[in-house]
């Protein structure tokens, strides 16, 4: 097997990859792993989004990668900087699970689905097509995004490995 260059994306973090490097983020629960890909230049980007909107932020300096509405524009900028073109980009996403089920569902407990909705809305705003998604459920996911092929590998404890 060819040793691929692995770039880790932490929680509430984002990064880009080129030249066949692989982006990886681990332990996605209610967070969403969103990937963008330019198939011509083979530029890949990944964001580990934790919360749906920066409107609720109470921190003085916002971590752009944490919120769906700030992470996606930031990721776009970073990718354009290395040659990606917005009209060629395609999106894939995974995560947004509901890790624990409760009877009295308050809104903050539904954070997974809300993250997914928010990501989709913003992606649509930028007119980027969503090619595939593996979201929801009640299980955690680890994802790897190959900037060479644009394939997204999803691993979970209960369902093993799948590729979208």
């Amino acid at each position: 097997m060819i040793q691929q260059n692995l770039i880790k994306v932490g929680m509430a973090d984002l990064n880009i990859a080129t030249e066949g490097s692989v982006l990886k983020t681990t332990g996605l629960g209610s967070c969403v792993g969103l990937t963008l890909y330019d198939p011509v230049n083979k530029v890949a980007g990944m964001a580990h989004v934790m919360l749906p909107s920066s409107e609720i932020a109470r921190e003085s300096t916002i971590n752009l990668a944490k919120y769906a509405d700030t992470a996606i524009p930031e990721l776009l900028d970073r990718m354009k900087h290395v040659g990606a073109q917005q009209n060629r980009l395609v999106a894939k996403m995974a995560g947004g699970a509901q890790m624990f089920a409760f009877s009295g569902q308050s809104d903050s407990m539904r954070i997974g689905p809300r993250n997914v909705e928010s990501c989709l809305e913003i992606i649509n705003k930028f007119k980027i097509p969503v090619f595939a998604q593996d979201t929801g459920g009640n299980y955690g996911r680890t994802i790897e995004f190959d900037s060479g092929s644009g394939l997204l590998l999803i691993r979970s404890v209960q369902l093993g490995i799948k590729e979208i």
Binding site: G27, L28, G29, L51, R58, G140
Partner: peptide, 20 residues
């Protein structure tokens, strides 16, 4: 839940996510 520790614990951190 039986799952990855990261996925489980992140659920308890959301209140902190808003501020740091």
């Amino acid at each position: 839940a039986l799952d990855m520790a990261g996925a489980i614990l992140s659920y308890g951190l959301l209140q902190y996510g808003e501020m740091g």
